[in-house]
């Protein structure tokens, strides 16, 4: 709640009337919203509802065709400088981890700082090791991604994103590709990150995590946000039929 109050004067992400088409398919139909510094938002909805596309537009993995996105005061346009600025400020964690298989875990993390931030190699490695410490897998630094478990890979991926010192972290279904026993180790890391004050946008089906961590839950369906509310309201007093159906279906599992 605290986040929402100071938020009004300090939005870090502003989206206005965001539209996106894949050929003829209208994926995002006018999303208008903003996120505050330090806010933890969980985005949920049925598959194909546009929730992943939405967060992917925020760092230009998908191009939006109409509307404005302003991130930390920088508008996301065709301006190469702005795109690069925003990508450095926005970290992203993918469903399939997308670690670079030909690099060690450590090299995965140091690549961005060395090549993009032009950091010295020794310094980057020190930062990377401390990040691996933070996600609790410092002992796996010199292994290759294929040699560690899915949960560990996802934690390396989080560390890789954090190494760029982003102001915002995007999570695109970070636990969907994981075996059940590995989900909690990733959620623990995300929880710790949330408590540290990071601005986080999380697309997930983990409703327990949403209820516990989120400041706000947004429900996407067919390219529009049909309901957004703090978790308590969202779960206990959903307004829309679609939301009610979704919650009852998700909680059954």
């Amino acid at each position: 709640m605290a986040a929402q109050e100071n938020a009004l004067n300090d939005p870090i992400i502003i989206c206005e009337d965001l539209h996106k088409w894949f050929d003829d398919f209208h994926v995002l139909k006018g999303i208008t919203t903003s996120f505050q510094k330090g806010e933890r938002a969980v985005i949920c909805g049925p598959s194909g509802s546009g929730k992943s596309t939405f967060i992917r537009t925020l760092n230009r993995l998908e191009e939006h065709q109409r509307g404005t996105i302003i991130i930390d005061g920088v508008e996301l346009t065709d301006d190469l400088r702005n795109i690069n600025l925003i990508r450095q400020e926005v970290g992203m964690v993918f469903q399939q981890f997308n670690l670079f298989p030909h690099l060690t875990n450590l090299e995965n993390i140091t690549l961005g700082p060395i090549r993009v931030r032009k950091m010295a190699k020794s310094e980057a490695e020190a930062v990377a090791l401390s990040l691996l410490e933070r996600v609790d897998i410092a002992d796996q630094a010199y292994k290759y991604p294929a040699e560690i478990s899915g949960g560990q890979q996802q934690r390396v991926a989080i560390a890789r994103a954090l190494a760029m010192e982003p102001k915002i972290m995007l999570f695109d279904e970070p636990t969907s590709a994981l075996d059940p026993e590995m989900i909690s180790e990733v959620l623990d890391v995300m929880r710790e990150l949330a408590h540290s004050g990071m601005t986080m946008l999380v697309v997930t089906h983990e409703m327990g995590f949403a209820r516990e961590v989120a400041d706000r839950i947004m429900f996407f369906d067919e390219g529009v946000v049909i309901e957004e509310a703090p978790p308590a309201d969202f779960f206990d007093n959903p307004q829309h039929e679609r939301t009610k159906l979704f919650i009852s279906q998700t909680l059954q599992h």
Binding site: T68, G73, V74, T77, D78, D79, N82
Partner: peptide
Amino acid sequence: MENNSPTTVSGKIPFWRDVRVLR
């Protein structure tokens, strides 16, 4: 980087940074 107003408005990007022009 700390200014809060958008640094640019669409349409006024210098051409050497505009992705479309560069393409």
